[in-house]
């Protein structure tokens, strides 16, 4: 599995634009603009990014956003709390689907 996620591949992200530079440019502009401080500070935005990175389980994003959090002056306490929120939301999302099971069972049960 390690061959599927090589650290040096993160540096090659720009190659994604090789076959459609225009779409990739638009993605990068959007991505960079979304990280600019607005109603939320950059500090808050990278912490959200870290939570999402864990929720989608992207090793590249986890690497990048952990560094961003440290560069925003946060430490492992902040990072750990964000990971717990991401995990809790993910867990809750599974758990709420238990109602679907209830509904399906109710529909065919006496």
């Amino acid at each position: 599995m390690s061959d599927y996620y090589r650290q040096e591949d993160l540096e090659r992200f720009g190659e994604i634009g090789k076959f459609n530079p225009e779409l990739f440019r638009k993605f990068m502009d959007w991505y960079n603009a979304s990280l600019q401080p607005g109603a939320l500070s950059r500090r808050e935005k990278v912490l959200i990014g870290l939570g999402v990175a864990h929720a989608v389980q992207c090793p590249y994003c986890i690497d990048a956003y952990t560094k961003s959090c440290l560069e925003e002056g946060m430490d492992m306490e902040h990072i750990t709390e964000a990971v717990h929120i991401a995990s809790a939301v993910r867990g809750g999302a599974s758990l709420i689907h238990g109602i679907q099971a209830h509904n399906a069972a109710d529909k065919i049960s006496l």
């Binding site: 950059r42 500090r43 560094k67 560069e71 925003e72 002056g73």
Partner: peptide, 9 residues
């Protein structure tokens, strides 16, 4: 790693 922007920290 580098420090954050001074005023925000």
């Amino acid at each position: 790693f580098l420090p954050p922007e001074q005023s925000s920290l």
